[in-house]
Structures are given as C-alpha cells and as structure tokens.
Design a protein around this nucleic acid. Structure first.
Lengths: 118, 118
DNA sequence: TTAGTATATTCGATTGTTATTATACACGGC
DNA sequence: GCCGTGTATAATAACAATCGAATATACTAA
C-alpha cells in the first residue's frame, strides 16, 4: 500500500508542471519527435529535454530513436483520461468561483464575502 | 489553455506526496477530524497539519470546525476516480515489470537484460 | 480566569525542483 | 575521418518543498 502511494505520488509529481502536462496533451494523438515537441512547447531546447527526462524517469513516456531524431509517445494513454477528469474538475471549480463572485457582487461586503476570502 | 494547465499542475502538485495521497484515500468514505487523520497517517502533528494546509490551499479538501475539532472532507470526490485510475495504471506497469523479470530469468544475461536495466 | 485539548503556524536546516548556459553525445552525409 | 543537425547531460544559481521543534491560536470545561 505504501509502495502504491509512492508510485501514485511519483506520477503526480511527474505531471506537476505545466510544461510536462503540455507534453502529455501534445502526445495525446500519437508520437512526436523531441524537436517538434520542444518547438510546440516554446521552451529552450535544454529545458524541454530535461522535462522529457523527468517524464521518461517516471515512465510516463517512452521513446524510440529513428536516425537522428527521437520520437516520444505516451506509455499508457490512461493518463489522458486523468487529464480529462481534471478538466471537468476545473470547470466545476470555476462554477464555484463564479457563484462566489456573484454572491460578492450581489451582497457587497458581508460575512459571506469575508468567509469566501479565507 | 495555459491557465488550465497551470491549474492541473497545481492539483498534481498537491497530490505529489504519499502522505497527502493517504489523506485523500482516508477521506474517501467521508469526513474525518484532523486528529484522527494524523493518527492514522502516523506522522508528527505539525507535519500532518502542514500537509492538510497544502491540500486546503489547492482546494482539494474543505474543513469545518465543530467545537474543539476540525473535520476535513474531499471537496470533490472526482479525485478518488483519479486515484483509482492510477491503481489500474500501476497494476499494468507491474505486469510489464513481471514480464520483464520473466524474460530476464529465461534469457539470462543478454542484450535484452542490459536494455531493461536502463 | 486558568488549565487542558485540538489544531495551526513559524522558524531554520535540509533537500528537491527549475531554468540557464555550456558542453557532450549520436547519427547521417560527405 | 570531419561537419552539421538533433538530442541529452553537467553545472550552477534561484527558488520551493519538507521536516521537526517550538510556539501560537481556538475552543471547552472547571
């Protein structure tokens, strides 16, 4: 059980950076070379390569060399499911925020607002 | 889109620690007081409270005070889904590892073994 | 008010993560 | 062999996360 939690924590940590999330999203529909990825990400070459190294270390992606280039792909597309779930979660949270904002606007400064601010 | 990725990264980071994953799992079936949580986690009081603060800051959990105690619960149980998906993912990965080990045992020291060690 | 219990926060030491710069490695063509 | 292109790896510096110890806060009961 402890091992499983460590494993989950490692996966979460692998994805705990916007650039690496972007990589997973870019690989959603198939493989892509390191160069293409880095160009799409709009980051420095070394930086992009380091992020790919993190994803490799945590086995989130796999790669294959073809001549000069290295192609990356998702090891298991189940992670895309996770991202999709989080998108729904994000939208839920936004709804909550919107409700909160509306309450603030409707009520002005009030206990509800103070509570929401915490 | 960038904002959504940052949001996802924040959630992942909130869960990128075995203790905090344990908290989410403990809250799976309902709320629990900070004290109960910390006891079950088997961590120092201050440390547990700090981890709860992280989960609060990222809105993963919410809390309510009742007298002397503070009860925590999951803000959105959808995160449990994510953990369940990762369990399946973990088992998949284990299957791969087992296959790898079997190959190693069957073939002895060989190029395939060297490759698997990387 | 004082004491006791439950929880949170602050501080400081340690360790981990990130971006940048520079350098190394791997491959193909010549 | 040498060059060019694509990719990975040090090395550093700035910053963030973690933990334990001590302290602070919130509440209850007496």
């Amino acid at each position: 059980m402890q091992e499983l939690r460590q494993f989950k924590a490692d996966i979460f940590q692998a994805l705990a950076h916007p650039t690496r999330i972007a990589v997973v999203e870019l690989l959603r529909d198939g493989e892509m070379s390191a160069g293409q990825l880095i160009e799409r990400l709009g980051v420095e070459q070394a930086n992009g390569s380091q992020h790919l190294a993190v994803l490799r270390a945590k086995q989130v992606v796999v790669n294959r060399r073809e001549g000069n280039q290295v192609f990356y792909s998702l090891r298991d597309p189940v992670l895309v499911e996770v991202l999709d779930i989080l998108k729904r979660y994000f939208l839920e949270q936004l709804k909550g925020t919107r409700t909160m904002i509306e309450e603030m606007e409707a009520e002005g400064e009030s206990p509800a607002v103070a509570k929401a601010r915490r």
